[in-house]
């Protein structure tokens, strides 16, 4: 452990992992809330064009990717907010165009090595330079300040946009802000898990956490904690086992999701048991003209009649 921490590159890698582990779920929770879990994926594709432009103009691919990804995210938000029925086709064009354009630009550029694009697609956390770390830290701080600081406002627009408008919130501005934050997160996480797996770190900690939580606030806190834990564990594991860190982090997150969903069902049952009396497990209402069913033997059953008819239905609703 101490040997691992004595390397500068490992210190930077772990710091970057913590930052990404916080930011990705902090933004991702709003995308999941709006059932746009795959939006981060699309932004990752669009960011490839930014990386390609960075290669062509010999500038920093990270900042170019931020620029292109923000433009892409704003376009996606405008397509979404117009509620166009062909919107998904427009998004498909944007995603495929972004990916194809990125690969084309990289192959045209002078420094087109075999591994150059590869490191952005799959992440290369061990090559994070001090300048990269500064960029990740600054962008990450902005994203966290917005997504945690404006939690109630962003929750409202993702929960019910029409209602949020009637509370006087600047819905369009907040939607654009959220899209820009997601774009920035994609580029921040690019070096750690890679563009192809960015979306996983935005989504998987959130859906894993919500297996066990009932409130939005708890889901946000738990998913950020989970993001940090799997990022640190993934980087540490990849150092010891000599495997790439991005896939290690993502597989670890999916394993946590699997474990949580297995323990979620018995936990929910216990919660229901602790709450109000859920009533009998089986129906005890008898239809007229039928003999008593074996194994029940409730004398009260037939005398209850239709006045009680709404309760089993209600109970069924609660048990979902």
């Amino acid at each position: 452990m101490t040997e691992m921490l004595s390397y500068d590159f490992m210190q930077r890698a772990l710091l970057a992992a913590v930052l990404v582990g916080i930011t990705a779920p902090a933004v991702g929770i709003y995308l999941v809330q709006r059932r746009q879990a795959l939006m981060g994926d699309g932004m990752g594709h669009v960011a490839m064009t930014g990386v390609g432009l960075g290669f062509i103009f010999q500038t920093s691919p990270v900042w170019m990717a931020v620029l292109v990804c923000v433009l892409g995210a704003v376009t996606m938000e405008l397509v979404r907010s117009r509620g166009n029925q062909r919107g998904d086709i427009a998004l498909a064009m944007l995603f495929y165009g972004g990916m194809a354009c990125g690969k084309l630009l990289v192959s045209l550029s002078a420094q087109a090595g075999a591994g150059s694009l590869e490191s952005y697609l799959w992440g290369s956390i061990l090559t994070v330079a001090p300048a990269d770390l500064t960029a990740i830290a600054v962008l990450g701080a902005v994203v966290i300040a917005v997504t945690v600081g404006l939690r109630r406002q962003l929750f409202a627009i993702c929960q019910d946009e029409d209602f949020a408008r009637v509370t006087g919130l600047p819905v369009r501005t907040l939607n654009l802000l959220l899209a820009v934050m997601a774009a920035v997160t994609v580029t921040v996480a690019m070096r750690v898990v890679g563009l192809l797996l960015v979306s996983a770190l935005m989504v998987v900690p959130v859906v894993a956490a919500q297996q066990l939580t009932r409130s939005f606030a708890a889901t946000q806190a738990a998913s950020i904690a989970l993001g940090v834990v799997v990022s640190l564990a993934g980087v540490t594991g990849s150092y010891h086992l000599n495997v790439p860190s991005g896939p290690a982090i993502v597989l670890l997150a999916i394993a946590v999701f699997a474990v949580f969903s297995v323990i979620a069902a018995p936990l929910a049952r216990r919660r229901h048991r602790a709450g109000a009396d859920p009533g009998p497990r089986e129906c005890d209402v008898q239809l007229p003209g039928q003999g008593s069913t074996p194994g029940r033997g409730s004398a009260k059953g037939s005398s209850r009649g239709p006045s009680d008819a709404t309760t089993p239905e209600r109970r069924a609703g609660l048990a979902q």
Partner: peptide, 28 residues
């Protein structure tokens, strides 16, 4: 103004408590 939209569902992709949903009405 208090607005009750036509309901499809009050639930979204992430769990939220009754209190959290009602609290958004205090944003103004």
């Amino acid at each position: 103004i208090g607005y009750v939209p036509q309901r499809t569902t009050a639930a979204s992709g992430v769990p939220a408590t009754v209190r959290e949903v009602v609290s958004t009405g205090r944003l103004p």
